[in-house]
Write a protein that binds this DNA or RNA. Structure first.
Length: 500
RNA sequence: UCCCCGAUAGCUCAAUUGGUAGAGCGAGCGGCUGUUAACCGCUAGGUUGUAGGUUCGAGUCCUACUCGGGGAGCCA
Protein backbone atom coordinates (compact mmCIF):
# COMPACT_ATOMS: atom_id res chain seq x y z
CA UNK A 1 0.00 0.00 0.00
CA UNK A 2 1.41 3.42 -0.92
CA UNK A 3 2.09 5.62 2.07
CA UNK A 4 3.47 9.13 2.37
CA UNK A 5 6.38 9.56 4.75
CA UNK A 6 4.46 12.09 6.85
CA UNK A 7 1.85 9.38 7.55
CA UNK A 8 4.26 6.63 8.64
CA UNK A 9 3.38 6.92 12.33
CA UNK A 10 -0.01 5.36 11.59
CA UNK A 11 1.58 2.27 10.02
CA UNK A 12 4.11 1.03 12.54
CA UNK A 13 4.65 -2.71 12.16
CA UNK A 14 2.92 -2.71 8.77
CA UNK A 15 4.30 -3.16 5.30
CA UNK A 16 4.07 0.01 3.19
CA UNK A 17 5.35 1.26 -0.14
CA UNK A 18 7.15 4.61 -0.36
CA UNK A 19 7.45 6.46 -3.65
CA UNK A 20 10.20 8.99 -3.73
CA UNK A 21 13.77 9.92 -4.52
CA UNK A 22 17.06 8.91 -3.01
CA UNK A 23 18.24 11.82 -0.88
CA UNK A 24 21.42 10.26 0.40
CA UNK A 25 22.96 6.81 0.71
CA UNK A 26 25.45 5.20 3.06
CA UNK A 27 26.47 1.61 2.75
CA UNK A 28 28.90 -1.02 3.86
CA UNK A 29 29.45 -4.54 2.62
CA UNK A 30 26.37 -6.07 4.15
CA UNK A 31 24.01 -3.18 4.88
CA UNK A 32 22.84 -0.11 3.01
CA UNK A 33 21.02 2.94 4.34
CA UNK A 34 18.87 4.74 1.82
CA UNK A 35 17.51 8.12 2.89
CA UNK A 36 14.39 8.66 0.84
CA UNK A 37 12.41 11.85 0.33
CA UNK A 38 8.90 11.89 -1.09
CA UNK A 39 7.88 15.52 -0.83
CA UNK A 40 6.28 15.05 2.58
CA UNK A 41 9.39 14.17 4.56
CA UNK A 42 12.54 12.11 4.80
CA UNK A 43 12.91 8.52 5.93
CA UNK A 44 15.89 6.23 6.31
CA UNK A 45 15.33 2.83 4.71
CA UNK A 46 17.55 -0.07 5.70
CA UNK A 47 18.56 -2.77 3.24
CA UNK A 48 20.32 -5.62 5.04
CA UNK A 49 22.05 -8.29 2.97
CA UNK A 50 20.00 -11.46 3.26
CA UNK A 51 18.41 -14.08 1.00
CA UNK A 52 15.25 -11.91 0.76
CA UNK A 53 17.14 -8.82 -0.41
CA UNK A 54 19.55 -10.64 -2.71
CA UNK A 55 17.66 -9.53 -5.80
CA UNK A 56 18.25 -5.84 -5.18
CA UNK A 57 20.92 -5.46 -2.52
CA UNK A 58 23.78 -4.74 -4.92
CA UNK A 59 21.55 -2.47 -6.96
CA UNK A 60 20.65 -0.47 -3.87
CA UNK A 61 24.31 0.19 -3.17
CA UNK A 62 24.85 1.63 -6.62
CA UNK A 63 21.87 3.97 -6.76
CA UNK A 64 22.82 7.55 -7.62
CA UNK A 65 21.60 10.49 -5.58
CA UNK A 66 18.03 11.49 -6.59
CA UNK A 67 17.23 8.15 -8.24
CA UNK A 68 13.45 7.76 -8.28
CA UNK A 69 12.58 4.64 -6.33
CA UNK A 70 9.61 2.74 -5.02
CA UNK A 71 10.46 0.99 -1.76
CA UNK A 72 8.42 -1.60 0.08
CA UNK A 73 9.22 -2.43 3.67
CA UNK A 74 8.13 -2.68 7.27
CA UNK A 75 7.77 0.48 9.32
CA UNK A 76 9.59 0.66 12.61
CA UNK A 77 9.62 3.51 15.10
CA UNK A 78 13.11 4.84 15.73
CA UNK A 79 13.36 8.12 17.53
CA UNK A 80 16.98 8.61 16.62
CA UNK A 81 16.18 8.73 12.92
CA UNK A 82 14.99 11.64 10.88
CA UNK A 83 11.20 11.73 10.99
CA UNK A 84 11.17 9.23 13.87
CA UNK A 85 10.79 6.13 11.71
CA UNK A 86 12.80 3.64 9.75
CA UNK A 87 11.72 1.18 7.07
CA UNK A 88 13.22 -2.30 6.76
CA UNK A 89 13.26 -2.84 3.03
CA UNK A 90 11.72 -5.95 1.47
CA UNK A 91 11.39 -4.68 -2.07
CA UNK A 92 13.00 -2.06 -4.30
CA UNK A 93 11.97 -0.81 -7.72
CA UNK A 94 13.97 1.78 -9.63
CA UNK A 95 11.48 4.04 -11.41
CA UNK A 96 13.96 6.52 -12.87
CA UNK A 97 17.73 6.38 -12.73
CA UNK A 98 19.85 9.35 -11.71
CA UNK A 99 23.58 9.75 -12.08
CA UNK A 100 25.84 12.69 -11.30
CA UNK A 101 23.20 14.77 -9.56
CA UNK A 102 24.93 18.14 -9.37
CA UNK A 103 23.83 19.23 -5.90
CA UNK A 104 25.65 17.01 -3.45
CA UNK A 105 25.23 17.06 0.34
CA UNK A 106 28.34 19.25 0.54
CA UNK A 107 28.51 23.05 0.44
CA UNK A 108 27.92 24.87 -2.83
CA UNK A 109 28.15 28.48 -3.94
CA UNK A 110 25.09 30.66 -4.42
CA UNK A 111 25.61 31.15 -8.12
CA UNK A 112 25.82 27.41 -8.74
CA UNK A 113 22.78 26.67 -6.61
CA UNK A 114 20.63 29.22 -8.40
CA UNK A 115 21.81 28.10 -11.83
CA UNK A 116 20.47 24.73 -10.68
CA UNK A 117 17.41 26.14 -8.96
CA UNK A 118 15.17 23.55 -10.62
CA UNK A 119 17.09 20.89 -8.67
CA UNK A 120 18.08 23.07 -5.72
CA UNK A 121 14.64 23.16 -4.16
CA UNK A 122 14.77 19.43 -3.63
CA UNK A 123 17.15 20.30 -0.77
CA UNK A 124 15.80 20.35 2.75
CA UNK A 125 16.30 23.99 3.55
CA UNK A 126 14.56 25.12 0.38
CA UNK A 127 11.78 22.63 0.95
CA UNK A 128 11.10 24.07 4.40
CA UNK A 129 11.11 27.66 3.13
CA UNK A 130 8.81 27.05 0.18
CA UNK A 131 6.34 25.23 2.41
CA UNK A 132 6.14 28.37 4.54
CA UNK A 133 5.61 30.38 1.36
CA UNK A 134 2.65 28.21 0.38
CA UNK A 135 1.05 28.83 3.78
CA UNK A 136 1.74 32.57 3.77
CA UNK A 137 0.00 32.77 0.39
CA UNK A 138 -2.89 30.64 1.59
CA UNK A 139 -3.33 32.86 4.63
CA UNK A 140 -3.24 35.98 2.46
CA UNK A 141 -6.07 34.67 0.33
CA UNK A 142 -8.13 33.25 3.16
CA UNK A 143 -7.71 36.33 5.35
CA UNK A 144 -9.22 38.59 2.72
CA UNK A 145 -11.80 36.06 1.63
CA UNK A 146 -13.13 35.54 5.16
CA UNK A 147 -13.17 39.29 5.82
CA UNK A 148 -15.46 40.20 2.96
CA UNK A 149 -12.94 41.23 0.31
CA UNK A 150 -13.57 40.31 -3.32
CA UNK A 151 -10.63 39.13 -5.40
CA UNK A 152 -10.10 41.32 -8.44
CA UNK A 153 -7.43 40.26 -10.91
CA UNK A 154 -5.61 43.24 -12.34
CA UNK A 155 -3.79 43.26 -15.69
CA UNK A 156 -0.09 42.59 -16.07
CA UNK A 157 0.20 44.54 -19.32
CA UNK A 158 -0.35 48.12 -18.23
CA UNK A 159 -0.56 51.20 -20.43
CA UNK A 160 1.10 53.58 -17.99
CA UNK A 161 3.20 53.83 -14.90
CA UNK A 162 1.76 53.19 -11.49
CA UNK A 163 4.88 54.39 -9.76
CA UNK A 164 8.28 55.68 -10.79
CA UNK A 165 8.72 55.62 -14.55
CA UNK A 166 12.37 54.53 -14.41
CA UNK A 167 11.57 51.12 -13.02
CA UNK A 168 9.27 49.87 -15.77
CA UNK A 169 9.84 46.90 -18.00
CA UNK A 170 8.73 47.81 -21.49
CA UNK A 171 7.15 45.21 -23.74
CA UNK A 172 6.41 45.42 -27.45
CA UNK A 173 2.64 45.06 -27.72
CA UNK A 174 1.92 44.72 -31.46
CA UNK A 175 4.24 47.59 -32.18
CA UNK A 176 3.22 49.76 -29.25
CA UNK A 177 4.98 50.00 -25.91
CA UNK A 178 3.20 48.68 -22.85
CA UNK A 179 4.60 48.05 -19.42
CA UNK A 180 4.71 45.13 -17.05
CA UNK A 181 2.59 46.01 -14.05
CA UNK A 182 4.40 47.44 -11.02
CA UNK A 183 1.22 47.48 -9.03
CA UNK A 184 -2.45 46.72 -9.47
CA UNK A 185 -3.39 49.58 -7.21
CA UNK A 186 -4.94 51.94 -9.72
CA UNK A 187 -7.17 49.09 -10.85
CA UNK A 188 -8.22 47.93 -7.41
CA UNK A 189 -9.09 51.53 -6.59
CA UNK A 190 -11.60 51.49 -9.41
CA UNK A 191 -12.79 48.04 -8.34
CA UNK A 192 -13.48 49.00 -4.72
CA UNK A 193 -16.03 51.49 -6.01
CA UNK A 194 -17.90 48.49 -7.41
CA UNK A 195 -17.33 45.90 -4.67
CA UNK A 196 -16.56 47.88 -1.53
CA UNK A 197 -13.64 45.82 -0.30
CA UNK A 198 -11.35 44.20 -2.87
CA UNK A 199 -7.85 42.82 -3.23
CA UNK A 200 -5.56 41.79 -6.04
CA UNK A 201 -2.79 39.29 -5.70
CA UNK A 202 -0.17 38.44 -8.25
CA UNK A 203 3.32 39.06 -9.55
CA UNK A 204 4.59 42.58 -10.11
CA UNK A 205 7.60 43.72 -12.06
CA UNK A 206 10.16 46.40 -11.33
CA UNK A 207 13.19 47.12 -13.45
CA UNK A 208 15.11 48.42 -10.45
CA UNK A 209 18.82 48.05 -10.93
CA UNK A 210 19.20 46.86 -7.39
CA UNK A 211 21.47 44.02 -6.46
CA UNK A 212 20.63 43.68 -2.81
CA UNK A 213 19.24 41.00 -0.53
CA UNK A 214 15.85 42.72 -0.47
CA UNK A 215 15.13 43.06 -4.18
CA UNK A 216 13.66 40.96 -6.97
CA UNK A 217 12.59 42.18 -10.40
CA UNK A 218 9.55 39.91 -10.23
CA UNK A 219 7.88 39.64 -6.88
CA UNK A 220 4.44 38.91 -5.49
CA UNK A 221 2.31 41.54 -3.88
CA UNK A 222 -1.14 41.54 -2.37
CA UNK A 223 -3.02 44.82 -2.52
CA UNK A 224 -6.30 45.29 -0.66
CA UNK A 225 -8.33 48.44 -1.28
CA UNK A 226 -11.28 49.64 0.79
CA UNK A 227 -13.96 52.14 -0.16
CA UNK A 228 -15.02 54.65 2.49
CA UNK A 229 -11.86 53.90 4.49
CA UNK A 230 -9.61 56.59 5.87
CA UNK A 231 -6.04 56.13 7.02
CA UNK A 232 -6.77 54.70 10.48
CA UNK A 233 -9.04 52.02 9.14
CA UNK A 234 -6.50 50.93 6.51
CA UNK A 235 -3.81 50.71 9.18
CA UNK A 236 -6.10 48.64 11.40
CA UNK A 237 -6.64 46.17 8.54
CA UNK A 238 -2.91 45.98 7.84
CA UNK A 239 -2.23 45.29 11.51
CA UNK A 240 -4.82 42.56 11.81
CA UNK A 241 -3.74 41.02 8.51
CA UNK A 242 -0.03 40.83 9.33
CA UNK A 243 -0.85 39.52 12.79
CA UNK A 244 -2.94 36.72 11.29
CA UNK A 245 -0.11 35.71 8.92
CA UNK A 246 2.30 35.45 11.84
CA UNK A 247 -0.17 33.41 13.90
CA UNK A 248 -0.89 31.06 11.03
CA UNK A 249 2.79 30.45 10.28
CA UNK A 250 3.49 29.81 13.96
CA UNK A 251 0.57 27.41 14.12
CA UNK A 252 1.42 25.38 11.01
CA UNK A 253 5.18 25.62 10.63
CA UNK A 254 6.93 25.31 13.95
CA UNK A 255 9.07 22.43 12.70
CA UNK A 256 10.00 24.19 9.47
CA UNK A 257 10.98 27.34 11.35
CA UNK A 258 12.99 25.35 13.85
CA UNK A 259 14.88 23.64 11.03
CA UNK A 260 15.65 27.07 9.61
CA UNK A 261 16.94 28.19 12.99
CA UNK A 262 14.30 30.89 13.35
CA UNK A 263 14.20 32.56 16.74
CA UNK A 264 10.63 31.67 17.74
CA UNK A 265 10.36 33.95 20.77
CA UNK A 266 10.66 37.07 18.64
CA UNK A 267 7.90 35.82 16.32
CA UNK A 268 5.69 34.92 19.24
CA UNK A 269 6.17 38.48 20.52
CA UNK A 270 4.30 39.81 17.47
CA UNK A 271 1.05 40.87 19.12
CA UNK A 272 -1.40 43.66 18.52
CA UNK A 273 -1.19 46.58 18.79
CA UNK A 274 1.85 47.27 16.62
CA UNK A 275 3.82 50.46 17.25
CA UNK A 276 2.83 53.67 15.51
CA UNK A 277 5.05 56.63 14.77
CA UNK A 278 4.55 59.62 12.57
CA UNK A 279 7.29 60.43 10.11
CA UNK A 280 8.21 63.43 12.26
CA UNK A 281 8.47 61.23 15.35
CA UNK A 282 10.58 58.80 13.35
CA UNK A 283 12.87 61.68 12.40
CA UNK A 284 13.16 62.63 16.09
CA UNK A 285 13.94 59.03 16.91
CA UNK A 286 16.74 59.02 14.36
CA UNK A 287 18.19 62.12 16.00
CA UNK A 288 17.80 60.69 19.50
CA UNK A 289 20.50 59.33 21.74
CA UNK A 290 18.61 56.04 21.62
CA UNK A 291 19.46 55.62 17.95
CA UNK A 292 23.01 56.68 18.56
CA UNK A 293 23.37 54.25 21.44
CA UNK A 294 21.93 51.43 19.38
CA UNK A 295 24.55 51.93 16.70
CA UNK A 296 27.33 52.45 19.18
CA UNK A 297 26.36 49.24 20.97
CA UNK A 298 26.22 47.56 17.59
CA UNK A 299 29.67 48.73 16.81
CA UNK A 300 30.96 47.36 20.11
CA UNK A 301 29.21 44.00 19.92
CA UNK A 302 30.25 43.62 16.31
CA UNK A 303 33.86 44.41 17.07
CA UNK A 304 33.74 41.88 19.90
CA UNK A 305 32.21 39.28 17.60
CA UNK A 306 34.81 40.00 14.93
CA UNK A 307 37.59 39.42 17.44
CA UNK A 308 35.90 36.22 18.58
CA UNK A 309 35.52 34.99 15.01
CA UNK A 310 39.09 35.80 14.12
CA UNK A 311 40.31 33.87 17.12
CA UNK A 312 38.07 30.92 16.34
CA UNK A 313 39.13 30.92 12.69
CA UNK A 314 42.76 30.87 13.71
CA UNK A 315 42.17 27.98 16.11
CA UNK A 316 40.17 25.98 13.62
CA UNK A 317 42.80 26.56 10.96
CA UNK A 318 45.39 25.06 13.26
CA UNK A 319 43.15 22.22 14.34
CA UNK A 320 42.25 21.21 10.81
CA UNK A 321 45.92 21.04 9.88
CA UNK A 322 46.87 19.01 12.93
CA UNK A 323 47.78 15.40 12.39
CA UNK A 324 45.42 12.56 13.16
CA UNK A 325 42.29 14.57 12.42
CA UNK A 326 39.69 12.45 10.65
CA UNK A 327 38.50 13.61 7.28
CA UNK A 328 34.92 14.13 8.45
CA UNK A 329 36.14 16.27 11.32
CA UNK A 330 38.18 18.28 8.88
CA UNK A 331 35.11 18.68 6.65
CA UNK A 332 33.12 19.92 9.57
CA UNK A 333 35.78 22.39 10.58
CA UNK A 334 36.17 23.63 7.04
CA UNK A 335 32.41 24.13 6.79
CA UNK A 336 32.45 26.03 10.08
CA UNK A 337 35.38 28.05 8.88
CA UNK A 338 33.51 28.99 5.72
CA UNK A 339 30.51 30.06 7.79
CA UNK A 340 32.70 32.07 10.13
CA UNK A 341 34.49 33.73 7.24
CA UNK A 342 31.18 34.67 5.67
CA UNK A 343 29.91 36.09 8.95
CA UNK A 344 33.19 37.92 9.41
CA UNK A 345 32.93 39.44 5.95
CA UNK A 346 29.37 40.58 6.61
CA UNK A 347 30.32 42.03 9.98
CA UNK A 348 33.30 43.88 8.63
CA UNK A 349 31.11 45.42 5.95
CA UNK A 350 28.54 46.40 8.57
CA UNK A 351 31.14 47.87 10.87
CA UNK A 352 32.44 49.90 7.96
CA UNK A 353 28.93 51.19 7.29
CA UNK A 354 27.90 52.00 10.87
CA UNK A 355 29.65 55.38 11.12
CA UNK A 356 28.02 56.34 7.84
CA UNK A 357 24.63 55.19 9.10
CA UNK A 358 25.12 57.14 12.33
CA UNK A 359 25.87 60.20 10.33
CA UNK A 360 22.86 59.67 8.08
CA UNK A 361 20.58 59.24 11.08
CA UNK A 362 22.02 62.17 13.02
CA UNK A 363 21.82 64.47 10.00
CA UNK A 364 18.44 63.24 8.86
CA UNK A 365 16.47 66.18 7.52
CA UNK A 366 12.75 66.55 7.63
CA UNK A 367 11.47 66.25 4.06
CA UNK A 368 13.73 63.45 2.92
CA UNK A 369 12.51 59.89 2.48
CA UNK A 370 13.69 57.38 5.03
CA UNK A 371 16.72 55.52 3.72
CA UNK A 372 17.34 51.81 4.10
CA UNK A 373 19.62 52.31 7.08
CA UNK A 374 17.13 54.67 8.73
CA UNK A 375 14.40 52.07 8.40
CA UNK A 376 16.69 49.45 9.85
CA UNK A 377 17.38 51.62 12.88
CA UNK A 378 13.68 52.25 13.50
CA UNK A 379 12.87 48.60 12.94
CA UNK A 380 15.63 47.47 15.30
CA UNK A 381 14.42 49.80 18.05
CA UNK A 382 11.07 47.98 18.13
CA UNK A 383 10.24 44.39 19.00
CA UNK A 384 6.95 44.48 17.10
CA UNK A 385 6.15 45.79 13.64
CA UNK A 386 6.08 49.57 13.43
CA UNK A 387 3.85 51.81 11.36
CA UNK A 388 5.47 55.00 10.18
CA UNK A 389 2.79 57.43 9.00
CA UNK A 390 2.40 60.86 7.43
CA UNK A 391 5.44 61.24 5.20
CA UNK A 392 6.21 64.48 3.39
CA UNK A 393 4.10 64.62 0.29
CA UNK A 394 6.93 65.51 -2.04
CA UNK A 395 8.77 62.21 -1.54
CA UNK A 396 5.68 60.06 -2.03
CA UNK A 397 3.50 58.93 -4.92
CA UNK A 398 1.09 61.31 -6.65
CA UNK A 399 -2.08 59.46 -5.62
CA UNK A 400 -1.60 59.77 -1.85
CA UNK A 401 -4.13 61.85 0.07
CA UNK A 402 -3.07 65.27 1.24
CA UNK A 403 -3.36 65.68 5.00
CA UNK A 404 -6.06 68.18 5.93
CA UNK A 405 -4.26 69.69 8.93
CA UNK A 406 -0.77 69.88 7.41
CA UNK A 407 -0.40 70.35 3.67
CA UNK A 408 3.23 69.23 3.73
CA UNK A 409 2.34 65.63 4.60
CA UNK A 410 0.11 62.91 3.25
CA UNK A 411 -2.03 60.23 4.85
CA UNK A 412 0.22 57.30 4.09
CA UNK A 413 2.08 54.65 6.02
CA UNK A 414 4.82 52.08 5.76
CA UNK A 415 4.99 49.03 7.96
CA UNK A 416 8.46 48.09 9.13
CA UNK A 417 9.01 44.53 10.29
CA UNK A 418 11.11 44.23 13.46
CA UNK A 419 14.67 42.93 13.86
CA UNK A 420 15.88 45.02 10.97
CA UNK A 421 13.73 43.34 8.32
CA UNK A 422 12.38 46.72 7.32
CA UNK A 423 9.61 47.70 4.97
CA UNK A 424 7.08 44.99 4.13
CA UNK A 425 4.06 47.21 3.48
CA UNK A 426 3.51 50.55 1.82
CA UNK A 427 0.03 52.02 1.88
CA UNK A 428 -2.04 55.15 1.97
CA UNK A 429 -5.36 56.80 1.85
CA UNK A 430 -5.87 57.89 -1.77
CA UNK A 431 -6.47 61.36 -3.04
CA UNK A 432 -10.21 61.51 -3.70
CA UNK A 433 -10.49 65.11 -4.90
CA UNK A 434 -10.43 65.49 -8.68
CA UNK A 435 -8.75 68.88 -8.60
CA UNK A 436 -6.11 67.85 -6.12
CA UNK A 437 -5.30 64.65 -8.00
CA UNK A 438 -5.05 66.53 -11.29
CA UNK A 439 -2.70 69.02 -9.64
CA UNK A 440 -0.55 66.14 -8.40
CA UNK A 441 -0.44 64.52 -11.85
CA UNK A 442 0.80 67.80 -13.26
CA UNK A 443 3.26 68.30 -10.42
CA UNK A 444 4.76 64.88 -11.14
CA UNK A 445 4.86 65.69 -14.87
CA UNK A 446 2.64 62.76 -15.77
CA UNK A 447 0.37 62.82 -18.81
CA UNK A 448 -3.25 63.33 -17.67
CA UNK A 449 -4.41 61.47 -20.80
CA UNK A 450 -2.86 58.26 -19.44
CA UNK A 451 -4.89 58.65 -16.27
CA UNK A 452 -8.23 59.72 -17.70
CA UNK A 453 -9.90 56.48 -16.61
CA UNK A 454 -8.37 56.77 -13.16
CA UNK A 455 -9.52 60.37 -12.85
CA UNK A 456 -13.05 59.24 -13.73
CA UNK A 457 -13.27 57.72 -10.24
CA UNK A 458 -13.12 61.21 -8.81
CA UNK A 459 -15.90 62.38 -11.15
CA UNK A 460 -18.53 59.71 -10.50
CA UNK A 461 -19.21 59.42 -6.80
CA UNK A 462 -15.77 59.86 -5.31
CA UNK A 463 -15.36 58.66 -1.72
CA UNK A 464 -12.46 58.42 0.71
CA UNK A 465 -10.65 55.14 0.15
CA UNK A 466 -7.32 53.55 0.77
CA UNK A 467 -5.28 50.40 0.74
CA UNK A 468 -1.80 48.97 0.87
CA UNK A 469 0.58 46.54 -0.77
CA UNK A 470 2.36 43.77 1.09
CA UNK A 471 5.51 42.26 -0.38
CA UNK A 472 5.15 38.51 -0.09
CA UNK A 473 8.82 37.59 -0.38
CA UNK A 474 9.94 40.11 2.22
CA UNK A 475 7.27 38.80 4.55
CA UNK A 476 8.43 35.21 4.06
CA UNK A 477 12.06 36.19 4.61
CA UNK A 478 10.99 37.79 7.89
CA UNK A 479 8.89 34.76 8.94
CA UNK A 480 11.74 32.35 8.17
CA UNK A 481 14.52 34.59 9.46
CA UNK A 482 16.37 34.60 6.12
CA UNK A 483 18.84 37.23 5.17
CA UNK A 484 18.13 37.04 1.45
CA UNK A 485 14.75 36.99 -0.27
CA UNK A 486 15.94 34.99 -3.28
CA UNK A 487 15.27 31.79 -1.31
CA UNK A 488 11.64 32.69 -0.69
CA UNK A 489 10.45 32.31 -4.30
CA UNK A 490 10.73 29.12 -6.38
CA UNK A 491 12.37 30.77 -9.39
CA UNK A 492 13.81 34.17 -8.44
CA UNK A 493 14.12 36.84 -11.10
CA UNK A 494 16.83 39.32 -10.30
CA UNK A 495 18.97 41.77 -12.14
CA UNK A 496 21.17 39.53 -14.29
CA UNK A 497 19.42 36.31 -13.33
CA UNK A 498 16.46 34.80 -15.15
CA UNK A 499 17.53 31.17 -15.65
CA UNK A 500 16.07 28.60 -15.20
C1' U B 1 24.20 54.99 -12.50
C1' C B 2 27.99 54.74 -8.51
C1' C B 3 31.27 52.19 -4.63
C1' C B 4 33.60 47.55 -2.56
C1' C B 5 34.85 42.17 -3.21
C1' G B 6 35.56 37.93 -6.22
C1' A B 7 36.37 34.31 -10.70
C1' U B 8 41.72 27.96 -10.20
C1' A B 9 39.04 20.26 -11.71
C1' G B 10 31.72 18.82 -12.26
C1' C B 11 31.35 21.20 -6.87
C1' U B 12 33.82 23.70 -2.42
C1' C B 13 38.47 25.59 -1.83
C1' A B 14 44.29 25.74 -1.40
C1' A B 15 48.84 27.20 -3.97
C1' U B 16 54.53 31.13 0.78
C1' U B 17 58.12 36.77 -2.03
C1' G B 18 56.32 36.25 -9.27
C1' G B 19 59.45 30.03 -9.74
C1' U B 20 57.04 22.15 -11.32
C1' A B 21 48.78 23.90 -10.32
C1' G B 22 47.04 20.56 -5.15
C1' A B 23 43.19 18.58 -1.47
C1' G B 24 38.32 17.11 -0.16
C1' C B 25 33.60 16.09 -2.16
C1' G B 26 31.26 14.15 -6.53
C1' A B 27 32.19 10.18 -10.60
C1' G B 28 34.36 4.92 -11.64
C1' C B 29 36.44 0.41 -9.27
C1' G B 30 37.42 -2.40 -4.68
C1' G B 31 36.66 -3.07 0.90
C1' C B 32 33.67 -2.77 5.42
C1' U B 33 26.65 -5.36 9.18
C1' G B 34 24.11 0.38 12.29
C1' U B 35 25.68 4.48 9.08
C1' U B 36 23.94 9.91 10.23
C1' A B 37 27.30 15.51 5.16
C1' A B 38 29.64 7.57 7.05
C1' C B 39 34.57 5.63 6.53
C1' C B 40 39.29 3.20 4.11
C1' G B 41 42.22 2.19 -0.63
C1' C B 42 42.98 2.96 -5.95
C1' U B 43 41.70 5.53 -10.85
C1' A B 44 40.20 9.37 -14.09
C1' G B 45 39.52 14.56 -14.04
C1' G B 46 42.94 21.56 -15.63
C1' U B 47 43.92 26.42 -22.14
C1' U B 48 43.68 29.14 -13.72
C1' G B 49 36.63 33.87 -16.75
C1' U B 50 38.15 36.66 -21.72
C1' A B 51 41.65 39.92 -24.36
C1' G B 52 46.04 42.48 -24.01
C1' G B 53 50.54 44.08 -21.22
C1' U B 54 55.09 43.85 -17.71
C1' U B 55 58.83 39.84 -16.88
C1' C B 56 63.99 35.08 -18.14
C1' G B 57 59.42 33.27 -15.91
C1' A B 58 52.40 35.17 -14.33
C1' G B 59 47.07 31.45 -11.03
C1' U B 60 49.91 35.42 -8.51
C1' C B 61 51.60 42.16 -10.90
C1' C B 62 49.07 46.09 -14.48
C1' U B 63 44.87 47.65 -18.02
C1' A B 64 40.20 46.74 -20.25
C1' C B 65 36.04 43.69 -20.65
C1' U B 66 32.50 39.71 -19.14
C1' C B 67 30.09 37.24 -15.32
C1' G B 68 28.91 36.70 -10.11
C1' G B 69 28.47 38.51 -4.82
C1' G B 70 27.57 42.71 -1.36
C1' G B 71 26.08 47.77 -0.76
C1' A B 72 24.28 53.04 -2.14
C1' G B 73 20.34 55.31 -4.65
C1' C B 74 15.19 53.43 -5.34
C1' C B 75 11.75 50.31 -3.38
C1' A B 76 7.64 45.78 -1.41
Amino acid sequence: MHCYIKDLSGHIGQSVTLQGWLYNRRDSGKIAFLVVRDGTGLCQCVVAKSPETEGFFDQSRRLGQESAIRITGTVRANEKQIGGHEVDVTGLEVVGESTDFPITPKPHGIDFLFKNRHLHFRSRRQWHILRVRATVIDEIRSYFNRNGFTLIDTPIFAPAAGEGAQTLFEVDYFGEPVYMAQTGQLYVETACMAFGKVYCFGPTFRAEKSKTRRHLTEFWMVEPEIAYAELDEVIAVAEDFVHSIVQRVLKDHREDLEFLGRDMASLEAIQKPFYRLTYSEAADLLHSTKAKELLQNDLETKHARIAELKKSIEEKDKQSEAQGVKQWQKDKMIAELAEHREELGDLEEEVKNIPHHMELAANFQWGKDLGGSDETIISRLHDRPTFVTHYPRNVKAFYMKKNEQDERICNNFDLLAPQGYGEIIGGSQREDSYDELMAQINRHELDPADYAWYLDLRKYGSVPHGGFGLGVERTIAWMCGLKHIRETIPFPRMMGRFYP
